[in-house]
Deep mutational scan, measured.
Amino acid sequence: ENVVSAPMPGKVLRVLVRVGDRVRVGQGLLVLEAMKMENEIPSPRDGVVKRILVKEGEIVDTGQPKIELG
């Protein structure tokens, strides 16, 4: 899985990584606000952040790609 998608609709509060960052499985990639709760979205695997496809403040839909890992 190279693309991390939104598990639920919500607002991107914070992006916790930058392009080029090495990430580990379970590491937080971003914080999504859904139903007035903050949810940290974890990396599904070890890898390197290739692209960030969302911006802080953006509203995302379920299944929308957010971060691409290499």
Rank of each mutant, 00 (worst) to 15 (best):
E1D: 13
E1T: 14
E1N: 13
N2P: 07
N2L: 14
N2F: 15
N2S: 13
N2Y: 15
V3M: 14
V3D: 04
V3P: 06
V4S: 04
S5C: 15
S5D: 06
S5M: 12
A6Q: 04
A6N: 04
A6D: 04
A6F: 08
A6Y: 06
A6I: 09
P7V: 11
P7D: 11
P7S: 13
P7I: 10
P7H: 11
M8Y: 15
M8H: 12
M8V: 09
M8N: 07
M8C: 12
P9S: 10
P9G: 11
P9Y: 10
P9K: 11
G10N: 03
G10T: 04
G10Y: 00
G10V: 06
G10S: 04
K11P: 01
K11L: 10
K11H: 04
K11G: 03
K11T: 10
V12P: 01
V12L: 03
V12R: 00
L13H: 03
L13Y: 00
L13W: 00
L13R: 04
R14K: 13
R14T: 06
R14L: 07
R14Y: 03
V15E: 06
V15K: 02
V15D: 06
V15I: 15
L16G: 02
L16F: 03
L16D: 03
L16H: 04
V17N: 00
V17K: 00
V17L: 00
V17M: 00
V17W: 00
R18P: 04
R18D: 11
R18F: 05
R18L: 08
R18K: 14
R18Y: 04
V19A: 07
V19N: 05
V19L: 09
V19P: 08
G20D: 05
G20E: 05
G20Y: 03
D21V: 08
D21E: 13
R22L: 13
R22V: 13
R22G: 08
R22C: 14
V23A: 02
V23F: 02
V23Y: 00
V23H: 01
R24T: 13
R24A: 11
R24C: 13
R24W: 11
V25W: 08
V25M: 13
V25D: 05
V25R: 14
G26P: 01
G26S: 06
G26K: 05
G26R: 04
G26F: 05
G26L: 05
G26C: 09
G26H: 06
G26V: 04
Q27N: 04
Q27E: 09
Q27V: 06
Q27K: 05
G28T: 15
G28Q: 06
L29A: 01
L29G: 01
L29Q: 01
L29C: 07
L30S: 02
L30A: 05
L30C: 07
L30N: 00
V31K: 00
V31M: 05
V31P: 00
V31R: 01
L32A: 00
L32S: 00
L32N: 01
L32V: 10
E33F: 13
E33P: 00
E33I: 10
A34Y: 15
A34N: 12
M35G: 14
M35D: 14
K36V: 07
K36S: 14
M37L: 11
M37Q: 13
M37E: 12
E38Q: 11
E38V: 11
E38T: 10
E38C: 10
E38A: 10
E38F: 09
N39W: 15
N39D: 05
N39M: 15
N39H: 15
E40I: 15
E40W: 12
E40A: 08
I41V: 09
I41A: 02
P42W: 08
P42L: 14
P42V: 14
P42N: 10
P42Q: 13
P42T: 14
S43Q: 01
S43R: 01
S43W: 02
P44D: 07
P44S: 05
P44N: 05
R45D: 05
R45M: 14
R45L: 12
D46E: 10
D46F: 07
D46H: 08
D46Y: 07
D46I: 06
D46G: 08
D46T: 09
D46C: 10
G47E: 01
V48H: 09
V48S: 06
V48P: 02
V48M: 09
V49A: 02
V49M: 00
K50T: 13
K50C: 13
K50D: 05
R51F: 04
R51I: 08
I52E: 02
I52N: 00
I52H: 00
I52V: 10
L53F: 14
L53W: 11
L53Y: 12
L53V: 04
L53T: 04
L53N: 05
V54K: 01
V54Y: 00
V54Q: 01
V54S: 00
V54W: 00
K55Q: 11
K55S: 11
E56G: 05
E56H: 06
G57N: 08
G57H: 05
G57Y: 04
E58T: 08
E58N: 06
E58V: 05
E58M: 10
E58S: 09
I59E: 11
I59Q: 11
I59W: 15
I59T: 11
I59G: 05
V60E: 02
V60D: 02
V60S: 03
D61R: 15
D61S: 14
D61E: 14
D61K: 15
G63T: 06
G63A: 08
G63K: 07
G63Y: 08
G63L: 08
Q64C: 07
Q64I: 07
P65S: 08
P65G: 11
P65H: 09
K66S: 15
K66A: 15
K66C: 15
K66E: 15
I67K: 01
I67E: 03
I67N: 03
E68L: 15
E68T: 11
E68D: 05
E68F: 11
L69V: 09
L69A: 03
L69R: 02
L69M: 07
L69W: 06
L69T: 02
L69F: 10
L69P: 02
G70Y: 15
G70H: 14
G70A: 14
G70V: 15
